[in-house]
Design a protein around this nucleic acid. Structure first.
Lengths: 366, 366
DNA sequence: CAGACCGCCTAACACGTTTTAATAGAGACC
DNA sequence: GGTCTCTATTAAAACGTGTTAGGCGGTCTG
């Protein structure tokens, strides 16, 4: 019914369909007067290019896929906002897929991306198996890893040094004088969790302490606030509360905080608490949360830039693995200044772009 | 290069391309043994259907578009999660667009949707102008409004009664005994803000009070925490703090809370504070936030169900305007029970599906 | 046993766009 | 006036899939 094609535009403008196509894609090849006549016809008929036909003929689309592990986590929506801003500036649309951290949903997302013949894919993989991604690349779909390092020279990645982040966090806790630390991690398949835990161990070793006796690792089934709260409740029931708890992300930490406070456990008085990511809500929580800040929005931006550069000219493109350095943010939950001190946090609680990181926080490899 | 088409599958399976197509789309029409032979060939070659060719030929795709006003607002990510779960169960992919509340980005999203020939569109419009949407519908793209009422019998919508929500909020504040209330709203073009303000006025009128003297409306340029904080700072600087502040959403309220606390203003002691949406972080904030709860995830689910029903059989489809009733949630910021009371909130702080609302909260019109 | 019917499959075209090679037309130069 | 160059346009052939009309055996029915 309603759908009007390039042919009808051509007829109205008294030119051939090919000329209409040229007006759309290479206007400089068309004489100004014809060009305007065609544009008028397009307006008049309300013509909208059929993206699928275009993709079919051109062999590729103007879309990229973005697969994240948790759409409910502000960390990932910040990344998505950064990527989308860059992509849409260059005329690309973003198809967003939520893998919810599961292998099967992730694969379903990738299948959709492949069927849609997206130009490229940004992905935070939920585990180390990159096989499906190589499958995409064989089909000519570029891939950039987000928040996951590519340990290979033929793949771009944008990450933040999670081992360093873990070190920062636990070194800070040790500075407080605590000597029994709990590490609440997410599922073991998640690299971020492992690296942050490894950094924690390094901080202990550097302080001459034995990780075995000082650090107790607890695994939550998901990296959500609910899981964090349940972990805290279990911990309280067991009667073996550590002096400090380091959580693998802020959502877990906010859940733990809630569980502790509801049980009457003081933070930081009885237990010091650290999160990770520094999501915007961390500064606004019941007891403001110490955390490890990452340049989240920037992560998405750079990833999209790398991807589109690679799509634009795969031959000339030099793959890069970019690593940012995280930053410690001390707040009340580890005895830092209270919220009445206006200096606690310069960045307002918001979801808009984070300030561009200082150059010193950026380290590029290769 | 790598891309393998239906023809090569056909050759390997020694059938015609049409049969392969049938295996993909109407397997029951193909004899079991041939079917299996074709499927084997598909696996062997790693064939992936070319979505664009399929869309081109079939005239429609297996995708829906979702345009939200703020991807950084947990309210909308919850809606998106609900919609995506339903859509992907039915084999549809979701293209997510962030309009950031601006007209121009919204129109860009709709253009992308139209070019992609999505099957339908879910949208929270940023203003009252539905013209572009009718344009879509003329092209055969179904539309369902999310969190925005369709005041027409030919359009589906899923909403929550914002006027009632505003009444609930302000009636509660009046119960506390306050007689000077500030209403911090977002841009005037946003319907939700207007309706919630209207409800606030109704609550005052019902209590025999004069809205003019009791309620002072302040407009923030955006519905973010940053804007909320800045509004609070301006208010403090002006020296005219009301006894209570009702914010048009929780992000604004969290920002206001932050601004007040940093300036040493007590909540709820000096100023009572109410948000709207009851996002998961509202219960975990510095002073836990009273709010108006909406069945967010459910909103997305139902919207997607309506949309796909309409897409499936536009003839038989009866348009419906569904209205949920919101629910008051009283917490510390209006003198409710502190967080040590385990009964404050049944639902854990998390981003997973909200419990299905009780039937009494659902009211369906027409 | 003829004819109708059925299940399964194939051949061929159509979908709307992009692109390439070819064509027409207008000057410009000798 | 003829040829050459350059520009503006066109015709036609793809791209990979879905669908429709029909063909080919074989089986059932009267």
């Amino acid at each position: 019914m309603g759908t009007v094609s390039i042919k009808e535009v051509a007829r109205l403008a008294r030119v051939s369909p090919g000329t209409v196509s040229n007006v759309l894609n290479r206007p400089e090849r068309v004489a100004p007067t014809t060009r305007e006549r065609v544009r008028q016809a397009i307006r008049e008929l309300g013509f909208v290019r059929h993206g699928s036909a275009s993709t079919l003929r051109a062999g590729h689309s103007r879309t990229i896929g973005l697969s994240v592990m948790d759409i409910g986590n502000p960390f990932f929506t910040d990344v998505a906002a950064g990527a989308e801003d860059v992509a849409s500036d260059l005329g690309y649309a973003v198809i967003l897929g939520n893998s919810a951290g599961t292998r099967s949903k992730e694969e379903r997302n990738l299948l959709v991306f492949a069927e849609q013949r997206v130009r490229g894919v940004l992905i935070t993989p939920s585990d180390e198996a990159l096989g499906p991604l190589d499958g995409l690349r064989e089909r000519g779909i570029s891939v950039v890893l987000v928040d996951h390092p590519a340990h290979r020279p033929d793949l771009c990645s944008v990450t933040v040094d999670d081992v360093a982040g873990g070190r920062l966090a636990v070194a800070h806790l040790l500075d407080l004088g605590v000597r029994r630390i709990g590490y609440l991690t997410g599922p073991r398949t998640i690299r971020q969790c492992l690296d942050r835990g490894r950094g924690a161990g390094q901080a202990l070793a550097a302080a001459g302490l034995d990780p075995e006796t000082v650090l107790e690792t607890m695994e939550a089934p998901a990296m959500t606030a609910r899981a964090g709260q349940e972990a805290a409740e279990r911990l309280i029931a067991s009667g073996r509360l550590p002096e400090a708890i380091f959580c693998a992300n802020d959502l877990l930490a906010l859940g733990v905080l809630r569980g502790l406070l509801q049980a009457g456990v003081g933070v930081p008085g009885d237990v010091a608490l650290m999160g990770y990511d520094d999501i915007d809500f961390a500064a606004a929580s019941a007891v403001s949360l110490s955390s490890v800040r990452q340049p989240t929005y920037r992560l998405g931006q750079i990833a999209a830039e790398l991807l589109l550069e690679e799509c634009g000219d795969p031959g000339a493109h030099a793959h890069r693995q970019i690593v940012f350095q995280p930053e410690l943010v001390v707040r009340e939950s580890t005895g830092g200044p209270g919220r009445t001190a206006a200096t606690t946090r310069r960045r307002a609680l918001t979801c808009s772009p984070a300030p561009k990181p200082r150059d010193s926080t950026l380290k590029e490899i290769r």
